[in-house]
């Protein structure tokens, strides 16, 4: 039984709870007969949907509303992001603004055990990763003494590396929606190695059986890779090939992102 931390500021459940042992087959096995369970080809990405601005139609002017927001879906991954800023920051750097990211999983977002409300180490690390991936794209010199805050909540997660990539894409869209000066939008994509083959945009089931996963985030116009993370063993040429393929996938994600952002600009102001 795993212990649930008692938090006096929340409604607490029993002190210990655990997932039951599921005896059914569960989800379909990821790689069967060389193909993927959902019928995609090895380098096919899941369909992407982005909505920037308020989720509902009626616009209201509100001083507490975020400067920019985005809702991002990629397959089953659902992420919502809000960007505040530039606003007065805690750290007041006269030369550059600062960019801070806050990342959290909703308690029901992961396919396995429910996540506790207290932030885990992996959520804190992902927040750092998102900061490092996005900061090179933001013109922080244009916002001295100010800070730009991004808050990301994962409503549903499907593959850890795919979720991190999706979060990066979501923040890009939110920053663009907020009108923050960017050098370029950052697009990210993930891959996993399974039986010596690189498979793009793996979901949780596929990532679990892969021996290595990596994701790349890229600024296509500047041709710069803003973040690279690999976990698991590969031979060096495999990594090279993966980074190459992943960069190409990033370009495709970039095209989708640009199209959505353009469409949202062309709509009557909402």
């Amino acid at each position: 039984m795993s212990a649930n931390i008692f938090d006096r500021r929340r409604v607490n459940g029993p002190p210990r709870s655990v997932e039951p042992l599921y005896t059914d087959e569960g989800d379909v096995k990821p790689f069967t007969n060389g193909g993927r369970a959902d019928g995609r080809s090895l380098d096919q990405l899941r369909p992407i949907f982005i909505k920037t601005g308020p989720l509902a139609v009626q616009p209201t002017f509100s001083p507490t509303a975020p400067s920019g927001s985005a809702y991002y879906e990629q397959g089953k991954i659902r992420i919502s992001c809000a960007v505040y800023g530039p606003r007065q920051g805690r750290k007041s750097n006269p030369r550059m603004g600062s960019f801070d990211c806050d990342f959290q999983y909703a308690p029901f977002s992961c396919s396995w055990k429910r996540r506790p409300h207290i932030k885990g180490a992996d959520e804190k690390e992902i927040a750092l990763i998102l900061e490092q991936a996005m900061a090179p794209a933001i013109r922080l010199e244009a916002y001295p003494k100010a800070c730009i805050d991004a808050f990301v909540t994962v409503i549903e997660s499907d593959g850890k590396f795919a979720t991190i990539s999706a979060a990066i894409n979501c923040i890009s869209a939110a920053l663009a929606d907020a009108g923050i000066e960017l050098y370029d939008i950052v697009a990210a994509c993930s891959m996993s190695l399974n039986a010596s083959q690189w498979v793009s945009d793996c979901n949780q089931a596929e990532e679990d059986v892969s021996q290595c996963s990596l994701f790349v985030s890229r600024m296509p116009s500047a041709d710069e890779i803003t973040y690279l993370l690999q976990q698991g063993k590969t031979m060096p040429d495999q990594t090279d090939r993966a980074v190459q393929t992943c960069s190409n996938s990033c370009a495709r994600v970039y095209a989708v992102l640009s199209r959505y952002l353009q469409a949202s600009m062309e709509q009557p102001a909402s």
Binding site: F99, E131, Q132, A135, P136, L214, R218, M219, A222, E224, I225, T226, Y227, L228, L229, Q230, Q231, G232, K233, T234, M235, P236, T239
Partner: peptide, 12 residues
């Protein structure tokens, strides 16, 4: 190669 991780905030 067992792991690769990028660090640093300023550039890619």
């Amino acid at each position: 190669i067992c792991a690769i991780q990028k660090g640093g905030m300023l550039k890619g």
